[in-house]
Simulated scan of single mutants.
Amino acid sequence: MNVKYYSRANCELCVDGLRTLKLVQEDIAFDIEIIDIEEDDDIHEKYMLMIPVVEKDGEILQYGTLDYATLTEALI
């Protein structure tokens, strides 16, 4: 299973979100593809007010402040 993680540099919420996502990864097997929104204008425009964003199969699972329970339930 592949999960996309949209973030950007110098984003404390993104650092916290990745930490939470990696905790979930300890219990559920999946790969994290980290995407810097500032490297693509379309992605930047789409997610600039939402980051961090966790997406699987084109569906946003959670964005902003991420929590373990919501991500775990969405990935099971």
Rank of each mutant, 00 (worst) to 15 (best):
M1E: 03
M1H: 09
M1T: 11
M1N: 07
N2M: 13
N2E: 13
V3S: 02
V3K: 04
V3C: 03
V3E: 03
K4I: 01
Y6N: 07
S7L: 02
S7G: 14
A9P: 07
A9V: 05
A9Q: 14
N10R: 09
C11K: 00
E12P: 10
E12M: 14
L13A: 11
L13P: 02
L13S: 08
D16M: 09
D16L: 08
G17P: 13
L18N: 06
T20C: 03
T20G: 00
T20E: 11
L21E: 12
K22I: 04
L23F: 08
L23V: 05
V24Y: 10
V24C: 02
V24I: 07
V24H: 11
Q25S: 13
Q25E: 14
E26I: 09
E26T: 05
E26S: 13
D27P: 01
I28N: 08
A29N: 15
A29Q: 03
A29E: 14
F30T: 08
F30A: 02
D31N: 13
D31T: 11
D31S: 15
I32M: 05
I32K: 10
I32F: 08
E33W: 01
E33R: 06
I35T: 02
I35R: 03
I35Q: 10
D36K: 13
D36E: 14
I37A: 03
I37N: 01
I37W: 03
I37R: 00
E38R: 13
E38A: 06
E38T: 13
E38G: 08
E39V: 07
E39G: 04
D40M: 04
D40I: 04
D42Y: 01
I43H: 03
I43A: 06
H44G: 10
H44M: 11
H44S: 02
E45T: 02
M48N: 12
M48F: 04
M48R: 10
M48E: 10
M48G: 01
M48W: 06
M50N: 05
M50A: 07
I51P: 05
P52E: 03
P52G: 01
P52W: 00
P52T: 11
V53K: 00
E55Q: 15
E55G: 12
E55M: 12
E55S: 09
E55L: 13
K56V: 14
K56F: 07
K56R: 15
D57Y: 13
D57H: 08
E59D: 12
E59Y: 08
E59T: 12
I60V: 15
I60D: 11
L61P: 07
Q62T: 00
Q62E: 06
Q62W: 10
Y63N: 15
Y63M: 08
T65C: 07
T65W: 02
T65H: 10
L66M: 07
D67C: 08
D67W: 04
D67V: 02
Y68G: 10
Y68I: 06
Y68A: 05
A69R: 14
A69Q: 15
A69K: 13
T70M: 06
T70L: 09
T70R: 06
T70E: 14
T70K: 15
L71N: 04
T72S: 14
T72R: 09
E73Y: 14
E73I: 14
E73D: 14
A74E: 15
A74V: 11
L75I: 12
L75S: 03
L75V: 14
L75E: 10
I76N: 11
I76R: 05
I76G: 07
